[in-house]
Amino acid sequence: MNANTLKLEGVAKTFGVVRVLEAIDLDIRQGERHALIGPNGAGKSTLFNLISGAFAPTSGLIALNGTSIGGLVPHALNRAGLGRSFQITHVFDRLTVRENILLAVMGRFGKRWSLMRIGPVWAQIAEETDRLIAGANLAAQAGKRAADLAYSEQRAVEICMTVGTGASVILLDEPTAGMSREETRHIIEFIRRMTEGRTLVMVEHDMDVVFTLADRVSVLVNGRILVTGTPAEIRSDPRVREAYLGDGEH
């Protein structure tokens, strides 16, 4: 009934006297890959933090699948179907790769207080964990501590965890930050594969990533959405060129 998986209506955020975001309206459709771009200080991170529950909006409505999620605590948000990754890698350093991903999958299957691994659900959990590990090409690293992985592999673990919670809407905060071209290409391919059939919202600086991965793009300038459209539309929009892309070289 509601095709908009994630809906923002008149969302505003003020820090003290500083108005960072004013009246953001945004409709994220089921299954699309939506990128948020904008110059530094446009409010991308704040918007991301509002959607992911780090702050509550000053005013306005944020709804996930028709229910308001504004101001929910992180674990409640996650259980409502929203998963997020972090710009600075948030993996469990001294746990193994497998344990990292297992934690995400366990929670999805409701095994948050288990003292034993008894019952058929644990076979499912193990299977799902293995599937994610294999999907991320981390099978050979599964027994290593996350801290001992290469940076790009840690990013892959991070994304596996976000996907592993079974979230229907996935927020990625600069998934390719700090990566080489080669690594970026891999991770984009990986994100595309892992988020198949899910809704994806990401903040990203790298225009190549945005234009190859996103179905739609919203450009944020000075706390407002300037325009939302397909990558082609955004690329050719004169207002965007002026406000953000500058001479088009990036």
């Binding site: 992180p74 350093d93 919670t165």
Partner: peptide, 17 residues
């Protein structure tokens, strides 16, 4: 495992539900 996850990175644990 959840308890050790909290030790390692509590915020992550919360965002895992």
């Amino acid at each position: 495992l959840v308890v050790r996850g909290i030790r390692e990175r509590e915020l992550r644990i919360r965002f895992l539900g």
